Amino acid sequence: MESMILSFVEYLKQFGYIGVIIALTFEFVPAELVLPLAGYWVYEGDLNFWGTVIAGTVGGTLGPLTLYAVGRYGGRPFLLKYGKYVFIREKEIKAADDFFEKYGAGVAFFGRFLPGVRTTISVPCGMAKMNVWVFSIYTFIAMFPITAFYVYLGEKFGPKWKEAGPMVKEYMGPIALVIVAALIVLVLIKYNKHRKLKNS
C-alpha cells in the first residue's frame, strides 16, 4: 500500500506546491510520508523550503476539514461504517472521542501532536459543531511546526528521507510540551498585563 501511495505522491510532484497540497488533502495519505518526501524534493532543489512548509500546512489543514465535515454532517455511524476504507478504525474514533470529551475545543490544536488521535480528532470536532473557522485556525497553527519539522528532516536526511517519519514520532511529545509551555507563558504574560492595566 505504501508503494501505491508513494507512486501517487510522486505523480503529484509535477504540480509543485499544489501537488503537495493535494496529496495532504486526502486523509488516507500519511503526512509522515508526504512531508519528508517533499523535504527531499527541497534537498534536490525542486522546491523551496518555506514554500513547501506553507503548502504542507495548507494541505494539512484542508485534509482534516474533510473529516470535520464527515463528523458534522455524517456523524459517528457514517465513519464507523465507511472509515475502514480510508484506514480509520473504531478504536481510533473512540480515542478521539474520549480526548475531545476530556479537553474540549483545544483538541483541534493539541490532538495534532498525538499519534492515534491526530487524524480522527477532526470527527468529534465536527460532531460537536465546533466553529469551522476556529477549528481551521487551531489546525493551521498546529500543523505549521509539525510540517516544518518533517520538511526540515526530509531535506537534511536527503536520500534517506524515509528515516524522518519515525524520528518525528519519537519527538512529537516533547515538541507538544514545549509549545504548550510557551502558550501558557504567553497567556500568563497577557493576563498580568491586563491585571496591571485594570489596577492602575
Rank of each mutant, 00 (worst) to 15 (best):
M1K: 05
M130K: 09
W133F: 10
G83N: 04
P145C: 13
P30V: 10
F113H: 11
G158E: 15
E163V: 15
G39S: 08
G74Q: 03
Y73L: 12
L186H: 06
I189H: 07
I54D: 02
Y82I: 06
G59Q: 01
F144T: 14
V107K: 02
I189K: 05
G111P: 07
G71I: 10
V29D: 04
M167V: 14
A69F: 12
F100M: 10
V180F: 00
E92Q: 14
I146A: 13
I121W: 08
L62W: 09
V151R: 04
T120I: 11
I18V: 15
Q14T: 10
G59Y: 00
N192C: 04
L6W: 03
R76S: 02
Y103Q: 00
T119R: 02
V9M: 09
L62E: 00
E101K: 15
A69P: 08
K94A: 03
K162W: 13
V187P: 04
L177R: 06
R118V: 06
I175H: 00
T147D: 05
G104M: 09
N192H: 12
F26M: 14
E92A: 14
V9Q: 11
G158Y: 10
G83W: 01
W41M: 05
L12K: 07
Y150H: 12
L65Y: 07
L67T: 09
F26C: 12
A105P: 11
K91N: 14
K190M: 08
L62S: 05
S3A: 15
K198N: 02
A148P: 11
G116K: 12
K81W: 00
F99T: 10
F144Q: 08
A181Q: 04
A105W: 06
L65V: 11
L67K: 13
W133Q: 00
A69W: 11
A69R: 12
K198G: 02
A182I: 14
V53I: 15
A55C: 10
M1D: 15
G154C: 07
P124E: 00
L6E: 15
E101I: 09
K84C: 04
L6S: 06
G116D: 11
I141K: 04
K160L: 05
I175W: 02
I22N: 03
G158A: 12
A38Y: 08
L65W: 07
K162E: 14
Y150S: 01
